[in-house]
């Protein structure tokens, strides 16, 4: 992931009013995590699994602050239970930013399940998402996700793939 893409993510978060980022680090977003840690006005909370991060983000929503859950797309599977309970059961939204492991061009066998399951899982949760493969679209995608989630009070996701994370 290039520094310019990292900067675009941070600009999008700032313009969307995000002040808390929960994350479980992954390799494709590697430079993003220290950049978030160093970002003024953004509190980062490393978590032990992405489901825990989703629930923390839900709690941040209830405080009036805005949170983001940053993770590899495999974390989506780990988050399904709290996402379903909070989103479908109570209308507590979580906005996610995830790296696209397992898309066409993937060269790691262990990442194949992430690509195969990602979109069907989001569709099962009836969750809108945008896959961004060009740097120019990152910032607006993040802003749009927050606009939608704070109108629907439901989850949304931005997935960064292709050259953006390679």
């Amino acid at each position: 992931m290039k520094q310019t893409a990292v900067d675009a993510v941070l600009r999008g978060m700032q313009r969307a009013g995000v002040s808390v980022a929960c994350y479980l680090p992954d390799s494709l977003f590697r430079p993003l995590y220290p950049a978030m840690d160093a970002s003024t006005g953004l509190r980062t909370i490393p978590v032990t699994n992405e489901g825990e991060g989703a629930a923390i983000c839900g709690g941040v929503f209830l405080s009036g602050k805005r949170a983001v859950l940053v993770m590899e797309n495999s974390g989506l599977r780990a988050s399904v239970e709290p996402l379903a309970r909070m989103g479908l059961g109570a209308g507590i939204p979580v906005v996610m930013l995830m790296s696209y492991r397992g898309e066409m061009g993937e060269n790691n066998w262990w990442a194949i399940p992430h690509g195969i399951t990602m979109e069907p899982v989001m569709q099962a949760l009836r969750m809108p998402y945008r896959i961004v493969r060009e740097e120019a679209g990152i910032e607006q995608a993040i802003i749009d996700a927050y606009e939608w989630s704070y109108s629907a009070y439901y989850h949304s996701a931005v997935v960064l793939g292709g050259e953006v994370v390679r």
Binding site: V20, A55, G59, K65, E81
Partner: peptide, 21 residues
């Protein structure tokens, strides 16, 4: 009081709320 019906989410949510306030 926020009444939930879920395992594993209560203390994480409470922490998120505490972090925000």
């Amino acid at each position: 009081s926020l009444f939930q019906q879920q395992l594993g989410c209560v203390t994480p949510q409470a922490f998120g709320l505490a972090a925000g306030l």
